[in-house]
């Protein structure tokens, strides 16, 4: 605040005037092409290496970094564990569409989001309440949600995101990292066994190690 009344306003107007006479930055696209940085891809595309292996490792780094959640990963992660969708740019288009639709307030057509309307969130609200809506307890929140609903419905993740203020992509990234969390409804028995058992990856490792020491090939090559 300046000491002379009205001086701040004059300063503001001076800036406006200066900008008014500056050259305009509007580019007459597409007649004139913008000066684009060399690494700009225009649209997101997944690349292949020289042996034809997809370079994306579904690590969710990009999805987590993207501030407006327009990127999400598709396909299988390195353990073939979960299934979203990948491919050409449409991969991400689908995700964008969902946010766009949601912003415009219309129902989202993707079947993956049909739970979005139907979920009874009372149990979830209870869980969130008990953790003080604190995103620092995300893992126990997700575990309790899975215990309550049998799996992690997309709608529940969205609700957790809204209530705790943590980004959906971060929550999804967390949830998809841990082998004991799942996005599809399992049978009750499966569920109980999965939470109590050692990880399948560990069991596989022990089996492979045992086979290797006993002089048989340790797991499929």
């Amino acid at each position: 605040m300046s000491l002379i009344p009205g001086f701040g306003m004059v300063r503001g107007m001076a800036l406006t005037l200066r900008r008014f006479f500056e050259p305009k930055a509007t580019i007459r696209y597409p007649e004139v092409k913008a000066d684009i940085p060399p690494k700009f891809r225009g649209r997101l595309q997944l690349l292949y290496d020289e042996y034809g292996t997809l370079k994306c490792e579904t690590c969710f780094q990009c999805a987590q970094a993207c501030p407006i959640e327009c990127i999400d990963m598709g396909g299988m992660d390195t353990k073939g564990r979960f299934h979203v969708h990948w491919g050409p740019p449409e991969t991400y288009g689908e995700r964008r569409e969902e946010s766009a639709l949601r912003r415009s307030g219309r129902p989202v057509p993707d079947p993956a989001y049909t739970h979005f309307e139907g979920l009874d969130i009372r149990a979830l609200d209870g869980i969130l309440e008990s953790f003080d809506h604190d995103p620092a307890h995300m893992l126990p929140i997700l575990e309790a949600t899975q215990a309550a609903y049998g799996y992690l419905p997309v709608a529940a993740l969205k609700h957790i995101s809204q209530v705790t203020g943590a980004w959906y992509a971060t929550i999804y990234g967390t949830a998809s990292f841990y082998g004991h969390l799942r996005f599809e409804p399992p049978s009750q028995a499966e569920q109980a066994a999965a939470m109590a058992a050692r990880r399948p990856a560990d069991a596989d490792f022990m089996a492979g190690l045992g086979a290797s020491l006993a002089g048989r090939p340790g797991g499929d090559a």
Binding site: E57, T58, C59, F177, G208, L209, L213, A214
Partner: peptide, 28 residues
């Protein structure tokens, strides 16, 4: 500390271990 006798193949053993480590790597 795991003792392997001469039934084991070092290549296979190293392969099993490395694969587990690669599968478990976090991707960051």
């Amino acid at each position: 500390v795991i003792v392997a006798d001469d039934r084991a193949c070092i290549v296979d053993l190293a392969r099993v271990l490395t694969r587990y480590c690669a599968d478990e790597a976090c991707g960051k």
